[in-house]
Design a protein around this nucleic acid. Structure first.
Length: 200
DNA sequence: TAATGGATGTTCT
DNA sequence: GAACATCCATTAT
């Protein structure tokens, strides 16, 4: 499969987030591939989206969201975990798609090791778990996923039913159903099916 | 199976 | 000082 081109990311964020379902997230460490099928994402935009880090404008933390699409936005949250996003929209327009869960398909054993002994069957079903399993942290903030050999996304063809819900863990902007997940996958993080995806 | 609270850094009020 | 795009262990049902 081909690495996704810049044009894939330079679009309305909810479309990008929805289309990422079924694509393959790849992390290469010392020539070893760790990869998973993306099964759950969320869309965050800029001004006008009160749940977004970019809602109040550019800061040191979120500046990647305002730059070129197709870059990694990795931030540290809750004093504990990293979360991985892919930037979207045209330059100057803030946006990012949060990758919340993948189904491990390459290097699954390695990913389980990265998660430690208390994983309890949860390898990459949750944004903090995903980054831990794939060894992603602040060092990769700003990485260009269109050209990077260490972190990128390959196109997918697998298309099950995609469903939507309100975004997880946010208290504002809950009227937007900008969480997308593969309906039949047992690798999504949580939440209950609520409606089939229409054009967001 | 569901609800609660702790760990812990960054950002904003 | 509070809230937060989280996860995990403990407690209650």
């Amino acid at each position: 499969m081909e690495q996704l081109p810049r044009s894939f990311f330079e679009r309305y964020t909810p479309y990008v987030a929805k289309d990422l379902i079924g694509c393959r997230l790849v992390r290469v460490i010392d020539d070893v591939r760790l990869a998973g099928i993306i099964v759950e994402t969320e869309a965050y935009r800029g001004r006008g989206d009160p749940a977004s880090h970019a809602f109040r404008g550019r800061t040191k933390r979120n500046e990647v969201m305002f730059g070129e699409a197709g870059h990694a936005y990795v931030y540290f949250t809750m004093g504990m975990h990293y979360c991985l996003n892919v930037t979207t929209e045209r330059p100057g327009e803030a946006g990012a798609a949060l990758l919340r869960a993948v189904e491990p398909v390459e290097g699954a054993d390695e990913m389980a090791l990265n998660r430690g002994p208390r994983r309890g069957g949860h390898i990459a079903d949750g944004p903090g778990r995903l980054t831990e399993a794939m060894d992603i942290d602040g060092r990769l903030n700003g990485e260009d996923l269109v050209t990077s050999p260490a972190l990128f996304i390959e196109g997918g063809s697998r298309q099950g039913r995609i469903m939507t819900s309100a975004r997880v863990g946010v208290s504002r902007g809950t009227e937007r159903r900008w969480r997308f997940f593969a309906a039949e996958s047992r690798f999504v993080s949580k939440g209950r099916p609520s409606s089939t995806a229409q054009n967001p």
